[in-house]
Nucleic acid binder design. Structure first.
Lengths: 142, 142
DNA sequence: GTTCCTGCAAAGAGTTTGCACGAAA
DNA sequence: TTTCGTGCAAACTCTTTGCAGGAAC
């Protein structure tokens, strides 16, 4: 399975091409879990891509405005994390010890949200759910 | 129903008494929904309580370490919010328009968490859930 | 040729820290 | 008397902004 090229993704999102935008999209596509802006900047530096940090912020803003990424808040590390939007949105188990993020495959919120919309006079359009605890590796080592 | 005095709450949490700590606890106890550090500072100023902002940060740290408050992240406003811990933890419907936070009375996560602990090798100890959308007032006005 | 993206440096917001003084126990 | 909380100012981190040059279309 070959994924859409970053160049095409930019076109589809009606964003101008630039080397910097392509590189950041490439990096985000490789990630299996969300990363911080700091980690993103680190990867950029490791690969000698030479992208200014303020440019990274501006590009992430553009990606967010064009609905290409999700920026959420990771409580245990107290930092923002970024991920490309997936066809089906994801939730994570977050280990309070090693800070690892483990995706949950199915979003368990559908029924709950239906119920809330019925009971409360509120139109739901999104939600955030994170679950904290300890992963099997960290439980073993204690 | 009279709530425990802030002075007693401090004793129970094994924190030294101070005028500043008592005042902040008093303010937090009055709130029906979480508030930002900025809003807390505003209330302090309105009441001429004269508490330095760095002291507010230090006191909130102490409260958090002693498990007296919850500090979460409010996505629509992109800011931290603080609330006293309740006997039963709460989740909120957050209006993307007026930013109002509406508490949900019952946490709907129990069964979901049980299922996750069974399926995945992960010990759950906490979770965060926020639901975003539009409240009835804001729907009316559009 | 026009638009808009980028690098750089500087500014800004929010938060933390060192230190001396003062209050609580 | 000892411990520790507080105010103040300065430092620090993360993020945003203005501007001039350069790349995309």
């Amino acid at each position: 399975m070959k994924s859409t090229s970053s160049r095409t993704l930019l076109e589809q999102s009606k964003l101008k091409y630039s080397r910097q935008r392509e590189s950041l999209l490439d990096i985000l596509k490789e990630q299996s879990v969300p990363i911080t802006i700091d980690q993103l900047d680190e990867i950029v530096k490791q690969r000698n891509l030479s992208i200014n940090l303020s440019t990274i912020y501006r590009i992430l803003d553009a990606f967010q405005k064009h609905d290409m990424i999700e920026k959420t808040f990771n409580v245990p590390t107290q930092s923002y994390v970024i991920e490309l939007k997936h066809a089906h949105h994801r939730h994570y188990l977050i280990c309070l010890d090693c800070k690892k993020m483990i995706p949950i495959n199915h979003c368990p919120m559908h029924e709950i949200i239906e119920q809330i919309e019925k009971e409360q006079d509120f139109h739901v359009s999104a939600h955030q759910l994170d679950i904290y605890g300890y992963c099997s590796d960290c439980i073993k080592n204690h």
